[in-house]
Amino acid sequence: MNETLKILKERRSIKKYKDIKIEKELLDEILEAGKFAANGKGAQSGCMIVTQNFDLVKKLEKLNAQILGNPEAKPFYGAPTVIVVFADSTRRTYIEDGSLILGNLMNAAYSLGVDSCWIHRAREVFETEEGQKLTSEWGLPKEHKGIGFCILGYRDCEYPNPKPRKKDFVKVII
């Protein structure tokens, strides 16, 4: 089987991580894949904020848990690396552009032996006062909206089996 198709079929979202940071060289390769995600009209409306800073990861996780409605939750599952994907909301395809970045990040990570999971609620997190303060500190324009969090790390659990694909997933009309 083609290596790309194999990666696309085998990658799974991981929800338990070891406390081991990803090596810079691997992280750089994963981020490079995000930079080359397809995007509407080549506008490159997306951008990524990347951190392995323990305190910032915990702060982002706490904000996410508050939006979740459970301040005690750990929605980043112990992952040591967080990539927040934003996109310029003045672009018509900003949600799609950011989503494609997230997909590239997760597939590239898997191809390099790094595990990942897409965590929602980025839009809501960065609409809060505290979230807006962070984006201002990071120098992001107000038009940039949160699309998703990509957590990265090395799994500390069994690799999940895929769920069966639903029967009517594909319909061919000739």
Rank of each mutant, 00 (worst) to 15 (best):
L5T: 15
M106A: 12
P164H: 13
L112F: 15
E129T: 13
P160R: 15
P80I: 05
P162Q: 13
G131D: 04
N53P: 00
R91M: 10
R11V: 09
K24N: 10
Y17T: 04
F54Y: 11
I14A: 02
E137V: 08
F86H: 01
T90C: 01
E137T: 13
K18R: 15
W138L: 13
K58Q: 15
K171W: 03
T90W: 05
K163Q: 14
L26P: 00
T90Y: 04
G98E: 06
A33S: 15
K21P: 04
A65Y: 05
E137W: 07
P160F: 14
S45T: 11
K58F: 07
T90L: 03
A122G: 02
E10V: 05
V84H: 03
G69P: 01
S136M: 04
T135A: 07
N2S: 13
I20N: 09
E137H: 10
D156S: 09
C157P: 00
K142E: 14
K9D: 09
K142L: 11
I20Y: 08
Y94T: 02
E72A: 10
R165P: 00
T51Q: 09
F86M: 06
N107P: 00
S45L: 02
E137I: 09
N64H: 05
R11I: 10
K167E: 14
E23Y: 08
L112W: 11
K16T: 08
K6S: 10
I101S: 02
I49G: 01
G69A: 08
V172L: 12
K21H: 12
C117M: 10
E29H: 08
P160N: 13
R121E: 06
V82E: 00
Y154Q: 02
M48N: 06
S111D: 05
R92H: 11
F169D: 10
L140C: 13
L63C: 06
I101A: 03
E23C: 04
R155L: 10
I95S: 04
K74H: 13
D115P: 02
E137Q: 15
S99D: 05
L56G: 00
P80A: 11
T135N: 07
Q52W: 14
C117E: 03
L105G: 02
R165H: 14
M106S: 10
Y110L: 06
Y94R: 02
E96F: 07
K9T: 12
I7W: 01
